[in-house]
């Protein structure tokens, strides 16, 4: 069992005052995927920056990693949400 700590998706949207319907998440290796804004506003994901209390290096898929609430919602444990769980997150673009 691993423990991730990070910024909640909803809090992130509110703090930066982001607007839009979808979010383009890009990784360090240019991996890119479109995530619906609802995944953020419903607080189903966090932008994790700690794994088991410690910051994550790039070699450990850090420093930022989109983590869904897999433990409390079994429906998330699918290919679709795995693909959205971007590690080595470089940027989030709201549009």
């Amino acid at each position: 069992m691993k423990r991730f700590d990070g910024v909640g998706g909803k809090a992130l949207v509110e703090v930066v005052g982001a607007k839009g319907t979808s979010v383009v998440a890009t990784a360090l290796n240019e991996y890119r995927i479109v995530i619906p804004i609802e995944d953020f506003t419903s607080d189903r994901l966090i932008i994790a920056y700690r794994l088991d209390g410690a910051p994550m290096s790039v070699r450990e898929k850090g420093p930022l990693w989109i983590i869904y609430d897999f433990d409390s919602d079994a429906d998330l444990n699918t290919e679709k949400y795995m693909a959205r769980s971007v590690w080595q997150l470089r940027s989030l673009e709201f549009r």
Partner: peptide
């Protein structure tokens, strides 16, 4: 270093 780290991570994975 960043690119190196990404590749190292990928190899582990």
């Amino acid at each position: 270093q960043l690119r190196l780290d990404v590749l190292v991570g990928r190899r582990t994975m």
